[in-house]
Amino acid sequence: MRYLRLIDRFIKVSFVEEVSYRANFWINLLHSLLNLITGVLGVYVIFGQIDTLRGWSYAETLSVLGVYLTIQALRNLFIGPSLDALAGMDGEVWSGNLDFTLLRPMSIQFLASFRRWRLFALFDLLLGLGVLVYAAISMDQALSISNIAMFLLTLLFGAGILYAILLAFSALVFWSPGVMFMWIFDGVFQLARYPLGLYPGWVRLALTWIIPVGVITTIPAQALRGGLSMERLAFSLVMAVILILCASIFFRAALRRYASASS
C-alpha cells in the first residue's frame, strides 16, 4: 500500500518535472517518430530485396520490431529513467548524491527502479503497439486467443528479463563509476530489433545465454505467430525469475561495495 502511494507520488512529481520543459515535447515527438521510421524502414528495405529471411516473413519480422519498440517504451516509462538517475551519465553514483538515496528508510532497489517516470514514453508505447497490431494483421494465419495469451505472458517475462539485465548493468557502475555500461547494453540490445534466427550461430548463442536480449523480443514474436512450444514458455519464465533474483542480489552487493569503498 505504502509503495503504491509512493509510486503515485513519483508519477505526479515526474509529470510536473516533465511539463516544466515544454520545448522538449516537440523534440521528444521528433525522436519518437524518427525511431519508428528508422526501425520500420530497416525492415522494409531488406524485404524489398527478398521475401523471407531464414524463415521469417516481412510481417513476422515486423512483429519482432513491434515487440522491441513496445518493450523499449515500457522500459523508458520508468525503469530506464529511474536507473539512469542512479547510474547514468549525470547519475547519483557519479555526482555523489547517492548519499541521500542510501539514507532512505526503505528498499533502495524499489527507489532505484520506480522513482522517475517519463510519461512521454506512453506515446512510444502506442507506436510500438501500433506496429504490433499492423504486423499481426498482415500475418498469414489468423490470431487465436491462446496465441495472444501466450504472447502477453512472454512479453511480461521478456520485460522481467530486461529489468533484471538493466538492474545488473546499473549495479556494475558501482564497481567502476564512469564506465557507461548502459551504453554498451543499448548497443547489444539493438540486436533484438531483428529475430534471433537471422544471426549466425555464435551470435545467437551469445544473445540467448550470455546477454539474453534475443529472448526478450524473439520469443513473444514466436508466440504471436503460433510457433511457441510450452517448453519455450517455461524457459522464458524460469529465466526471468532466476535473472531477477540474481540481479537483486548483485545490486545489493554493489550497494555494500559502494559503502565500503567510496569516499
Binding site: G42, I46, Q49, I50, L53, R54, G187, V188, Q190, L191, R193, Y194, L198, Y199, P200, V203
Partner: peptide
C-alpha cells in the same frame, strides 16, 4: 554496433 547488425543481417540474407 548498428552497421555491424546490418552486416550480419545482409550477409545472412
Amino acid at each position: 554496433i548498428t552497421p555491424l547488425i546490418y552486416m550480419l543481417v545482409w550477409s545472412g540474407a
